[in-house]
Design a binder for these strands. Structure first.
Lengths: 221, 221
DNA sequence: CAAGTTATCAATTTATCTATTGAATACCAA
DNA sequence: TTGGTATTCAATAGATAAATTGATAACTTG
């Protein structure tokens, strides 16, 4: 076999993983799994597609080495294989918004009116001085699977009725799944409508966690 | 338009970039562009495919925001859009070899017998004490487009006849395009066959350069 | 402006991918 | 063992993508 043919096989093998990113449906599944492992059924409901279809996409992802599957009684729980895969997804997400105007437009359209943001460094400083309260507005299960240290969980759905839990004399910072997730945007809008001072963290939990472990993200986990 | 429909549009937009990674031919082009900008004709020759086909793939990459095109007289020069795209490609390459056995196998098969490697940190230390000579065995144009500081250019093709240029009393370290490039492997094998002490650097020029600028690779360049 | 090079376009064929449907399988609990 | 739930399989139709071919357009040089 010629040398160039061998090189062709190599690129074909890499493309096995590349193909996994070619379908919007699969990207949506990856995005959900980036927050927490989930069963097929949960994924199907949350991504609004049929169970059979979801299962097939998950098998495609499994074939590309991007997710692991674990049987749990009657259901099967899928999870991202490791931080290298997570970081790959985040890199794609960030590059696409930086380089494709249509992504930027679609994101603005989905997220609605932008709200004031706070960056990582400022948040860390303000958490240290204690004049800010950090709120995780994702669903409870995702908070349980992992969250920023010092954050309290108030899922967006419960925000309205649990307003009293938040001290009224200090600023609220909300975060959610990431820059393309609407939860934190909506939370800040609601908080402001209730007369609170609020901003959203400009990154989500996966971004925060990866930045916290500054190992080389090119490598395997 | 419903909220979920807007989210669907967002993922469809991101998939525009994801699709770019779905074809082995395109990956080969990206890999070449990761070293240095090139014209359509050069890319077609180096990736061993027709000019028309190459041009079409390049247009696909351009549509995905991953390459820029510049007319230069009678030809058109393509280049990767920025470091975020480069780092995305490296992340895919590294994740695929870590997670897919077929990539690992295809790589081993293409690269042949493995040779001794040296890591980044050790190389830096040895360069400081001066008891090692670093050689860039990529084609001259790629060296010109950028190389590791302190490296000298001896393209693999010329290695045999230029052996005398290398001091015989110190170890030689060779590097090339990256871990999937056969040049450094072959260079080390030839050097050893000539009785030299030689190892290959375990990363290529793009990897080295990105690691040197420890900005967050998730962000745009 | 004519000739030659480089790149792109347009049309076609072939191959691959996606979503849907309905059936089949694996597991749990009674 | 039986019934119920969760997941996967198999088959199909529809949609997309890839490589090839030959023609066209853009530019440079003589």
């Amino acid at each position: 076999m010629s040398s160039h043919q061998k090189k062709t096989f190599l690129f074909e093998a890499i493309a096995l993983m590349g193909k996994a990113f070619a379908s919007p449906r699969r990207l949506e599944l990856i995005d959900l799994l980036a927050q927490a492992p989930r069963t097929v059924d949960e994924l199907a409901r949350e991504s609004d597609q049929s169970t059979a279809n979801t299962s097939q996409h998950l098998q495609a992802l499994h074939g590309a080495g991007m997710v692991t599957r674990t049987r749990e009684g009657t259901s099967v729980r899928y999870a991202l294989t490791g931080d290298d895969v997570l970081s790959l997804w985040l890199a794609l997400r960030n590059a696409s918004v930086a380089r494709l105007a249509e992504v930027e437009r679609a994101a603005r359209d989905y997220l609605g009116q932008d709200v004031e943001v706070i960056g990582r460094d400022e948040l860390i400083a303000r958490l240290r001085t204690g004049d800010v309260v950090l709120v995780d507005v994702r669903p409870g299960k995702e908070y349980t699977a992992g969250h920023i240290e010092g954050a309290r969980s108030i899922p967006l759905e419960e925000l309205q009725e649990r307003l009293a839990e938040l001290p009224s004399d200090c600023e609220v910072v909300a975060y959610c799944r990431g820059p393309f997730c609407a939860y934190a945007h909506e939370a800040v809008r609601r908080l402001k409508a209730s007369g609170r001072s609020a901003r959203r963290l400009d990154e989500g939990w996966p971004d925060w966690r990866l930045a916290d472990t500054p190992t080389n993200h090119h490598r395997a986990a």
